[in-house]
Design a protein around this nucleic acid. Structure first.
Lengths: 219, 219
DNA sequence: AACCTCTACATTGTCGACACAATACATCTT
DNA sequence: AAGATGTATTGTGTCGACAATGTAGAGGTT
């Protein structure tokens, strides 16, 4: 696993991580108001710490804030999901293109080994792959782009929102095996250093994923 | 003109706008350290206000911060510029695609009228177009995408960084007229509702712009 | 002279209190 | 009774002070 291990130094960071977790996982419900005074009591820190945490949640687009009124957790909607996946398609497509250009041969080998491991897991225990496996694959591509902006925007920002939709819509799809094949093909394009194809396949992959998630939302 | 008119309500917002301006325009030099104590004296506000402003500057990727150490203005580099334009290419390409899908007929007409005005200005007073005209065109496309994430990330985030590079590298290029023609063609593709072409033309447009800016950087 | 240690300083992180704006409720008017 | 007005309360915005951390310099040791 190469998931980023975020270490909280200050108490504002700890609170930020905790709040983000609670929002993504629905402990704090979507659309709820975030009262600074209440949170400072609940998490046993001062309001200054809460304010800093909320500031950082804002830059992840997980909460919205109006001056003199307060902060609210974003509301989930079909329209919001569509917009989110349009940005994902664009950015991760570029990430795949850049990964095909910039990943080292060793990193590409590691990526393919990862998929081999997943292959085994898909056969016996499908439940694993659909969350962690997918996340891990996409993380590696993004890191492989070697583009700091892409890495920041996607990993520190959008992915948490994506996970929020997934968790709160109760994702558990039949897309496990087909998604795995798509991953395989993307990795192959990257190994062949075919930027054009890598980008195109990644964009399609995300489009399919979007349709899959939308079909459950509109039910 | 349809540039966003940002109104500062709180003093933290005012300070944020002022700081952002000073950083983008080089009054506060790239790479400089932002001392909270010093800034709170200079802008005549408390440290809490400065901290909030710096927080927001962080989410624009204009400053970087380390816990217990402090915040620094980002440093400009050829590599950073390249990364920035790769993200721009990706996001604005998608914006153009979505604009072709979502802009109203009226908005498209306005866009073309805007280009007609620019056409006149390009012929007599080239200096105008290269900054404001270009900015205005791109803003309209992004707004036309009707995608909140795109709008936020680009207009509130990346564009300020782009402007920072432009200002501090002293942009003044011979690309004025050719860029104008590219704008015309993009608008045409949007008017024809040709998403594919609109995205492709926008991506090329930004690639050319990147090469143009890079050629001056490496001198 | 180079290296390590300890102390003093400067800066950031955190806190509680006050100032101000927005909302909710009660009272008054028509 | 419905609406408007004024007041009370809640919550956010701002501030100055204290605590904790990092940094630089003096002094000592090898």
């Amino acid at each position: 696993m190469t998931l980023p291990i975020e270490v909280a130094i200050t108490s504002a960071e700890k609170t930020f991580f905790q709040l983000r977790k609670d929002i993504v996982e629905g402990v704090i419900v979507a659309g709820a108001k975030l009262s600074e005074t209440e949170l400072s009591g609940r998490y046993a820190v001062s309001r200054a710490v809460i304010r800093e945490a909320i500031s950082r949640l804002m830059s992840c687009h997980l909460v919205e804030r109006k001056a003199n009124i307060g902060a609210k957790v974003v509301t989930l909607s079909a329209a919001g999901l569509k917009e989110l996946y349009q940005v994902r398609e664009s950015l991760e497509g570029m990430a795949a293109r850049l990964a095909a250009r910039n990943m080292s041969d060793g990193e590409i080998q590691d990526l393919q080994h990862l998929l081999d491991e997943h292959s085994a897991q898909v056969k016996e225990d499908q439940s694993y792959y659909q969350e962690a496996g997918d996340v891990d694959f996409h993380y590696r591509i993004v890191q492989g782009s070697k583009n700091t902006h892409l890495i920041n925007v996607l990993i520190d920002g959008l992915y948490h929102l994506v996970r929020m939709y997934r968790v709160q819509l109760g994702m558990a799809g039949p897309r496990v095996t087909t998604a795995f094949i798509e991953h395989k093909n993307i990795a192959l394009a990257i190994a062949n250093r075919d930027e054009e194809l890598a980008e195109m396949l990644m964009r399609r992959h995300i489009l399919y994923s979007q349709r899959n998630i939308e079909s459950k939302l509109t039910v």
